[in-house]
Design a protein around this nucleic acid. Structure first.
Length: 571
DNA sequence: CAGTGAGCGAGCTTCCGCTTGACTT
């Protein structure tokens, strides 16, 4: 006898709980808890199949690469519960995520549960009452092309991993592994180390001066930009071989200053009779836009920079916040916010920082990630009105509170107005000195007149290599062209260019995402894998490759060239 | 006859991506 309930299956138990509230009576919502079946480990195949064409991969390599799936022991209980619930249902809704894996889970459910009642595929990208209702009214069939894509991905990964890893056992050492994703990650780290080993530092000198106007006693700093009409080289003018970069004209367009020249010039400029004059003052408007709301990778990056969390730690704290209803789903590549979330962020920003601090129109962010599947929302505070970090003090503790605070600030800021101000660039001429050459100094200062989103949140950045450290907000006194200045102090400083930095967990995750390698659910475990295999060792925040990583990458490059191309390894 | 050692064969390691909780340290 068919039941009178409708069974809805989603992937996550926490999601099931929320959705059950929205759907109310007449629906039972259960979770598959991820995949329910997978390729069996070849060693666990029935003895008679181990010797056949399935034996090596659990994929029948002689019969159209047919996969051999099993429900694992851990999943038997879940599947039994789903079967039991299905008996009391008159309709089945497969509401797994709308991405490649989710579509495959839906198909596996269908294949395993063998329902005799009508089945509908239902998808939603945000967990709000409206979205769920809309999804219910717009069901579709399973997308078999997407299911096939997932199966192909799965088969290819097994073939790559289980074919190549044994080569490493024989040639390099036991227990090693290779795979589409981990080998690309290892190669990135090794390639960077090769660049570091090949790097030749370049030494160069520059000059900075403290200046003052006669009217005003405020001092400001200016850097030597040109000498005798030629641009003075800074760190970014050098290549990784320690040579000045050559332009298309075949010549370097900057000259490097050595210690002798720099100190001689500094000494000459200390002479009070040298004339120092403002030659031009240029003012340009400055605007800065807020960063998009968090996806998994940007959350991991920012939590590493601001909170010093490891990728794994970030995910574990976020999981806790998600399960207890404080944030939305934490494994996502989407930058979208639901309409309700946008409204909530704007209302909260408006009441906290004033209506003028909110952007004119709702901001929409597009994912730059190569193979984003956007099955969820961006990571944001849960609910139609956000709880402020202040309201949660004493409720959330320690790292939980810190991560919530970060997510809340980023979400609010993403709907706020641009920061505005102006950047003044001043050119100052000193000289003639040392014969008849003229030294040209440059100074710039940014004044922010409207803070906008900066009131809530500012994204931190990794320092760019060989960049001149620009002060974020530096005030210049009012200056006009032709104005005379006085030199308070001149300093010649020696510098050396630095090698490209090693990857950190954060920068590796960023690069993997940009290359389309790995998924939000796997970034943290990719790092664990390459550490566990002994390919890299964390030293501080840096990931340092070991000799074994060099051996493995070298072998893969020499004998499996196609497999380690970064574009092949993209998901 | 007891003890040693060479030689052989069998069994183990491994992939990626989706979810938690059950483990150990």
């Amino acid at each position: 006898m068919p039941g009178t309930k409708k069974l809805v299956i989603v992937e996550s138990p926490a999601k099931a709980k929320t959705i059950a509230q929205y759907l109310g009576d007449g629906y039972e919502v259960l979770a598959s808890v991820g995949h329910i079946r997978d390729l069996i480990e070849p060693k666990n195949l029935p003895a008679e199949l181990k010797r056949g064409s399935l034996g090596k991969f659990s994929i029948d390599v002689e019969n159209g690469f047919a996969p051999y799936y099993v429900v694992s022991d851990q999943k038997k209980k879940t599947v039994a519960e789903l079967k039991r619930a299905l008996k009391g249902a008159d309709e089945l809704y497969l509401a797994t995520d709308e991405d490649r894996e989710g579509e495959a889970i839906a198909w596996h459910l269908l294949d395993e549960l063998k329902p005799k009642v009508p089945v509908k595929r239902m998808v939603f990208h945000e967990i709000t009452k409206e979205a769920i209702q809309r999804a219910q009214e717009n069901t579709r069939d399973i997308d078999t092309a997407l299911v096939d894509a997932q199966e192909t991905r799965r088969i290819l990964d097994r073939l790559y991993g289980y074919e190549v890893s044994p080569v490493l056992w024989r040639k390099i050492g036991p227990g090693l592994s290779a795979g589409r994703v981990q080998s690309a990650a290892t190669r990135l780290v090794v390639d960077r180390e090769r660049e570091r080993l090949a790097f030749v530092p370049a030494g160069y000198w520059d000059l900075s001066t403290q200046l003052t106007t006669s009217a005003d006693s405020t001092q400001f700093e200016a850097r030597l930009a040109k000498l005798g009409g030629s641009r003075v080289a800074t760190g970014r003018d050098f290549d990784d071989k320690g040579q000045l970069k050559v332009q298309t004209s075949g010549r370097a367009d900057a000259v490097a200053l050595d210690e002798k020249a720099a100190t001689a010039l500094a000494d000459a400029l200390r002479d009070a009779s040298v004339s120092v004059v403002v030659t031009s003052v240029d003012s340009k408007p400055y605007t800065r836009r807020p960063a998009a709301p968090f996806s998994t990778s940007t959350l991991q990056q920012e939590a590493a920079r601001k909170l010093r969390f490891s990728a794994r730690q970030t995910m574990s704290v976020a999981q806790g916040l998600y399960e207890n209803g404080y944030i939305t789903y934490m494994r996502t590549d989407s930058l979208n916010l639901s309409q309700q979330a946008i409204a909530a962020a704007r209302a909260q920003a408006s009441s906290l920082y004033g209506a003028e601090s909110v952007s004119d129109k709702p901001r929409v962010y597009a994912s730059k990630s190569k193979n984003a599947q956007e099955a969820h929302e961006a990571i944001r505070p849960a609910g139609d009105t956000f709880r402020t970090p202040g309201q949660l003090e004493g409720v959330l503790r320690g790292n939980d509170w810190k991560l919530y605070d970060l997510i809340w600030k980023r979400t609010i800021a993403s709907q706020m107005a641009d920061a505005k101000g102006s950047t003044a660039s001043v050119v100052i001429t000193a000289g003639p000195v040392l014969g008849d050459s003229v030294a040209e100094f440059a100074a710039s200062g940014t004044v922010i007149t409207f803070r906008g989103f900066l009131q809530a949140y500012e994204e931190s950045r990794d320092e760019d290599r060989n960049d001149v450290a620009e002060p974020k907000e530096a005030k210049l006194p009012p200056l006009t062209a032709g104005q005379k200045l006085e030199i308070v102090d001149v300093e010649a400083k020696g510098h050396e260019t630095s090698a490209p930095p090693r990857y950190t967990e954060a920068s590796l995750v960023k690069t993997l995402e940009e290359l389309g390698i790995g998924r939000p659910s796997t970034y943290a475990s990719i790092i664990s894998t390459i550490i566990d295999r002994g390919y890299v060792t964390p030293r501080g925040t840096a990931l340092v490759p070991n000799w074994i990583a060099f051996s493995v990458v070298r072998l893969l490059e020499d004998y499996f060239t196609d497999l380690v191309q970064y574009d092949f390894t993209a998901g």
